[in-house]
Design a protein around this nucleic acid. Structure first.
Lengths: 112, 112
DNA sequence: TCTCTCAATCGTACATCTACGATAAACGAT
DNA sequence: ATCGTTTATCGTAGATGTACGATTGAGAGA
């Protein structure tokens, strides 16, 4: 499906892109991935194996979920020898919360 | 897949349920549904047909997306004769933003 | 070098999502 | 009663998501 690329907000408002907001939401649209993000937020950084221990899922499945989060830009992974260290991309997460506010859903927004 | 039902936050924090946060994110994980929510936020309430005009999608597809948003609790629809009037469920949307904050992603949170 | 560990990728099965046209159901108007 | 309007649901095809075990590859250490 194709949507028009133009913004759906008025000119003087911040740009709000439904496509990119949807893709971040989609990445957070599975409990395992939400738990990974929540865990990373508390623990700051960890190895893939730590997450495998955390969740009742096979290593390959966890790796797949991490790939999904990386592709959405929510998580970064840096290879350290045979290990990979994962952490949140704070910049992207700030963008996410800003978009939640732009959607008009923020309890702090000017709409209330 | 089954996850343990216990909260993943510490005891004195608010309850954070990954399952229900994920299900709301999933509902917002498609550009068409994001556009519907954004539209409803601006227009307050409208008929299904208005959304069909807004999006480049068949009526049946739009109806399906609305059903998805209703099942996630983000949108309410009340039948008015042969028409159905849709609007946002503000209570649920507030819950959503609260959960974003609980996830630790809020720019207003105590983590920053 | 050989082996061990850690993580990514492959292959695959099954489920869910997304889109459409066709049809049905509810109601107002003629 | 019949017709037109509006929306939901059905059936379906194709794409995508989710899970697993098996395999591969990269690097550390003996």
């Amino acid at each position: 499906m194709q949507f028009k690329k133009q913004s759906i907000t008025t000119a003087k408002e911040k740009e709000f892109d439904p496509e990119s907001f949807a893709s971040m939401c989609k990445a957070l649209g599975h409990p395992a991935r939400v738990m990974i993000v929540n865990y990373l937020n508390r623990i700051d950084r960890c190895l893939c194996g730590d997450i495998v221990d955390l969740l009742p899922l096979a290593q390959s499945t966890v790796s797949q979920h991490l790939k999904c989060l990386k592709e959405a830009g929510l998580v970064k992974g840096e290879v350290e020898g045979p290990k990979t260290c994962y952490c949140l991309d704070k910049r992207m997460l700030k963008k996410f919360t800003r978009m939640v506010a732009d959607l008009g859903l923020s309890p702090h927004g000017e709409k209330q």
